[in-house]
Design a protein around this nucleic acid. Structure first.
Lengths: 229, 229
DNA sequence: ACCTGAACACCGTTCAAGT
DNA sequence: ACCTGAACACCGTTCAAGT
């Protein structure tokens, strides 16, 4: 509850800002933004805070925990549109679009999200919203729980894929492999090669989200039995 | 085409097996299987091959390339059921189930798949199969290309999630966070907490795949226009 | 052409010692 | 309680030198 960010009322600040979880996390996010996932390390965060790496272990138990804290802190930017005027489906799409946006905006954040299961306050808030929106749409129980999991997983996955697609030399390899395929050996692949390579990340992501949402709402329930009638 | 695996007909083998891309990749997969993703490194692979890390750079340009080669080599185990007797949808599900199985079976492989876009022969073969099966189901063009992408992405994501869920202390954190939530602040989350935590990975994955397949087959096309009638 | 040792510039984490 | 320097056990990659 108390976020430990009490004001240091000392007149003569010790020139070095006092350490805290929050300071470490936000500095780490700054570094991630500037240098990407490859440039993030405990040592660099420590150096940027003008201290040694060992000092961070007072506030963190390890690097994984820092990752989880960073992710949750970044997810504070996800907008939970409370506009009751819009129908639930539109609000659900807006929420997921914002979620995706946040993960894509900060360089390297998507990569982080893949290797961590976040469970901080912001993550919980998003999950709660998703569950509520699905319930408004008549989905609850196991279906809603699994649906939220599926939606969150997919948003993370698509963000990560797009972050890999841009930048690295990985795409160049794919392009090479695709241009080298023969029409006889891989007829379908050959025919689809242009479409497969076309980016259009945004439209693609929206299309896929629509399909998943529609499937959760109108698709079959997970457990066939379990009816109580 | 020629896989460079010519037989060394020397009578006196040099006691040290000659290096080659294949030898390096299969040793790396062995190490991944035994020690997991955290235990895999170029240096360890080199040591296991009784040489120095520098020697590997004759066959690999960097670690990323090794990852891509490992992934594609592992995907050789994906079974492409050619049984024409089964309807296309059943074959599609079997193929995806096998894909998922392979990624889940080898410890750490799923993690690998997330950070690499594979484009080796086995990957191409799977893509070709997927495209063919979707076409049998009446899906082609942009919808099929994006569909294959979505299916492959999702299989990878669910495999990775399950590999994170088991083992690490991440799950323990989630469990803690979930048990600490208040029914007033997060009513939906509180009601769903048991279902959300329940593993049941297999059933969950199958359910989600069904939804995605159904959505691709019967859902809207990506580009609204482009009809030729 | 292929392999090697040594070096370079990094990592995360621990621990005794300081304040 | 908090911070620190130094150490430990690792990384990927490069490069001059060997065969």
């Amino acid at each position: 509850m108390s976020t430990n960010s009490e004001i240091v009322s000392r007149r003569n600040r010790p020139a070095k800002a006092p350490l805290s979880r929050d300071v470490i996390v936000s500095m780490a996010l700054d570094i991630l933004e500037r240098d990407g996932a490859a440039g993030l390390s405990l040592r660099r965060v420590a150096t940027a805070l003008d201290t040694g790496a060992a000092s961070l272990y007072v506030y963190l138990s390890n690097l994984d925990e820092l990752h989880a804290l960073m992710l949750d802190a970044a997810l504070a930017a996800v907008k939970t549109t409370d506009v009751r005027a819009l129908p639930w489906r539109a609000r659900l799409k807006k929420l997921l679009a914002s979620y995706l946006q946040v993960l894509c905006d900060r360089q390297g954040l998507a990569q982080l999200a893949l290797s961590t299961i976040p469970c901080g306050p912001n993550t919980l808030r998003i999950w709660e919203q998703l569950l509520g929106l699905l319930k408004e749409g008549g989905v609850d129980g196991t279906k809603a729980a699994w649906g939220v999991d599926l939606l969150a997983l997919y948003v993370t996955a698509i963000a990560a894929e797009q972050s890999i697609r841009q930048g690295d030399q990985a795409l160049e390899r794919v392009r090479n492999a695709m241009s080298g395929i023969s029409a006889e050996e891989f007829p379908h692949l050959f025919a689809a090669r242009t479409t497969l390579l076309s980016g259009e990340g945004e439209a693609r992501g929206a299309w896929a989200l629509d399909i998943i949402i529609e499937g959760i709402v109108s698709g079959a329930s997970p457990k066939p039995a379990k009816r109580r009638r």
